[in-house]
Design a protein around this nucleic acid. Sequence first.
DNA 1: TGATCCGGATTGGTAAACCAATGTGGCGAT
DNA 2: ATCGCCACATTGGTTTACCAATCCGGATCA
Lengths: 238, 238
Amino acid sequence: MELIGELDAPRIGALQLDGDGALVQLRAFIARSDLSPLDRLPPERELCETLGVTRNELRKALTILEAEGAVTRHVGRGTFIAEGERPAEQGIGAIAKRTSPRAVMRARFLIEPVIAEEAAQMATQEQVENLIATNAQARAAGSWREYETLDNQFHRQIAEAADNVALLAMFDQLNALRRTVVWGRMRSDRPAPGPDHHSFAQHAAILGALSDRDGALARKAMQSHLSAVADRLFSNAD
Amino acid sequence: MELIGELDAPRIGALQLDGDGALVQLRAFIARSDLSPLDRLPPERELCETLGVTRNELRKALTILEAEGAVTRHVGRGTFIAEGERPAEQGIGAIAKRTSPRAVMRARFLIEPVIAEEAAQMATQEQVENLIATNAQARAAGSWREYETLDNQFHRQIAEAADNVALLAMFDQLNALRRTVVWGRMRSDRPAPGPDHHSFAQHAAILGALSDRDGALARKAMQSHLSAVADRLFSNAD
DNA sequence: TGATCCGGATTGGTAAACCAATGTGGCGAT
DNA sequence: ATCGCCACATTGGTTTACCAATCCGGATCA
């Protein structure tokens, strides 16, 4: 059934241009009329005539630019070139640019204890044993980097033990955010922490609470631990 | 009231809920109904009713997805998932398939109270007043959909008041997950809730705690509220 | 029996009237 | 003269009816 188009014969090449021709023209117009951010561009009814497109086509193009964050539109006021950057995407990187290490650690301090409390109620015996094993491995780490990996694993295993994929996803996102934002403060060339490192005792306290199914204690132990971590991070002391 | 250069108050994340509700819902729909490339999605007239948005809003969202290359549209044939696979939405969609409404609501029950507690300490007077205004608007909502929008706004404003972008990002992700997973239990054609709806009193309790800067009370009030929401959601009673 | 063609149903696209938010300017009271 | 207020013009947004491309099922004919 490829016989269509014989009668009306719409220009084949013109079809593609028709589809987003307005967008191309609009982009060209903005570029050529060197508008600076926060400047207003002509009203739709006027601009569509200038560009030789229908108001519908123009509005479709404007909708795309708006989604890209290139322009903002306000009823009664007009359409404006967006200021500064394009806050369009919402990935980890975009969030990271708008937050700070302190804020991320604060968020961690608020959320992880709750996860630990939930884990205390949900963890299986096997998961607790795995946590104990991980903590033991961390004690024996040969380098700071190896220790860090095991420390991450410890915290994530707790989140896994909460047995809630949604909660685990929250943890992972926050963790990714932390790695992005706090990165640079980590000096991975340091030697491995000694067996008397405060974290080990704190981890052990968390483990004890998990074993005892003591949610409130697990929460408090995690809070204490993260407080210490934040202090160490921001004081530049060991 | 100058809206343009408001940099002193970090109004960072007004990205999603405000104007592009249809786009969020549409993305969630595509993620949830695991459509493979070249699959056709429902016709506009049907889909807009399913999602509880107007055809205009849906078409605007589709225009954006089309510009992103996520879908292709053909008159008389329909709208199709683009050929080149879409790795973008992998996050929420992938998580959604591995979790359940109960788990998501549980995560919400664990996290939002902590956010409320933080908000009680961080909120500005203006933010509290805005929350009061939002709650008042929700009372006067004319339709269930409008009420739902305002309810979402209420909860997000609390998250904003915590003044922590990382925390706000967690909230947004959980909220997106909830919309994807819990969807289908929402009956958007129901009439607006009466002024004696339990949520209003519970919201008021939260507001009171925020006004008094009583973090512990805010946490408990939010817990009570979310408990009630979950009960209502899973019991199918109003 | 099979292909072909036609007419209606379906579906995305379009145009124009209408709406609501906003800005502007003049008018009048003080 | 100055301030407040109100009517009107401007502007982006929305609704509605309609259009055009496509699909589908049955009628028709070789």
